[in-house]
Amino acid sequence: MTKVTGNFSQLQQQLDVERRLVSFDSYDMTIKQIYDMFAEGHIFVPPEYQRQFVWDAVRESELIESVFLGIPVPSLFMATNADATWEIVDGVQRLSTVAHYIGDNSDLLESINRKGALELDKLEKLTTLNKQKFEDLPKSVQLMFMTRPIRVTVLNDKSDLSVRFDLFERLNTGGILLTNQEIRNCIYRGKFNDSLKKISKIDDFKTVVRLRESDSKNGTAEEYVLRYMAYLYNYENFEKSVKGFLNDYMKVNSEKALPAKKASMFKQVLSVLAIAFPHGLSRGQSTITPANLFEAISVGTALAIEEGVQIDTQKLRALVADSELKKITTAGTNNKRMVTGRIHYVRDYLK
């Protein structure tokens, strides 16, 4: 009994710490109301969601058929922005399918990467609708479709950004899931986010940081820059969660453009690394740049430069094969001692 009581006590402590203010509004809205809000720009689809427009015509047709038949469609989940617009959190495929089907707004179709209205295909129950577009239907049937209800749940502005990140992460159920950085790009939009995107495109960075083809357009490059900034200027406050650490740094700095001094230091560091690693910073047979290795090398190099060290690129190249550095930059080494240890190890090695 004592063991059970202790477990429940620990559970209650975790609930008290982790439970956050989550405030929702729920609406039963018609297809027309949702479509009009989307067409008028009152529902925002973040650019990061563009990768999720992957449903083919058959999958989209199945959803439209479900709406016609009155089969419950999963709720759309939105978050309220500061200007009172809504931002899609979960349901981008369903929202874009409705817009694709109604198809009377060319700008809206372009925004969801569609060239024309949806022609229904391979329906099993409403077979007479096959090869038909919305505009082909009698007005009465169009009205029936437009007045069908869909449940919409909206996270209102009483909930903080940390809650919004958790919800984006947990409710993001599209065909292609967002990465953590794409979620940050949605939530912490602002001058700092713009700076990360801009500086991740400099040539020296692209020379040094080699990513998988699948990571080339999903925010991974911006996350590497964020890791450099967060660790260089805040590594002493790192605890144990990389995701939370990066979230907090982005949250605090979201409205601030990257200061010129920090941008200049980043470019200086990457210029040195590009000379040392003209074929990319990697280890062994791999051509991909490990995040932990990039953090250690880039931040340690920056700290050494700040102390007036003239960086020896040959030492940098040799450092990648160093057995001690390898030990503290492999998987499972993201605790405070290891993070601080590898940054200081590189700094002191170069001094």
Rank of each mutant, 00 (worst) to 15 (best):
K122P: 01
K122Y: 05
L123K: 02
E124C: 05
T127Q: 03
T127M: 11
N130T: 09
N130W: 03
N130A: 05
N130V: 00
N130G: 02
Q132C: 05
K133M: 15
D136L: 01
L137F: 02
L137H: 04
L137G: 00
L137R: 05
P138Q: 11
P138I: 07
S140K: 06
V141I: 06
Q142I: 01
M144E: 05
M144V: 10
F145A: 04
M146E: 06
M146S: 12
M146C: 06
M146I: 04
R148Q: 07
R148C: 03
I150W: 04
I150M: 11
V152D: 11
T153V: 10
T153L: 11
V154Y: 08
L155N: 09
K158P: 13
D160Q: 06
D160M: 08
V163K: 08
V163P: 10
R164Y: 12
R164C: 00
F165K: 02
F165M: 10
F168K: 07
E169N: 07
E169D: 01
R170T: 01
R170N: 00
R170I: 01
L171P: 14
N172T: 02
T173R: 13
T173K: 15
G174P: 00
G174C: 04
I176G: 08
L177K: 14
N180K: 06
N180Y: 09
Q181F: 07
Q181V: 13
Q181C: 02
Q181E: 06
I183E: 03
N185S: 12
C186E: 05
C186G: 09
I187H: 03
I187W: 08
I187P: 01
I187K: 01
R189C: 04
K191G: 13
N193L: 08
N193M: 08
D194T: 13
D194S: 14
D194K: 12
D194L: 10
K197F: 13
S200L: 01
S200E: 09
I202G: 05
V208G: 11
V209W: 07
R210Y: 14
R210T: 15
L211D: 14
R212T: 07
E213F: 10
S214A: 10
D215Q: 10
D215M: 07
S216R: 14
S216L: 05
S216A: 12
K217I: 14
N218T: 05
T220N: 03
A221S: 03
A221Q: 07
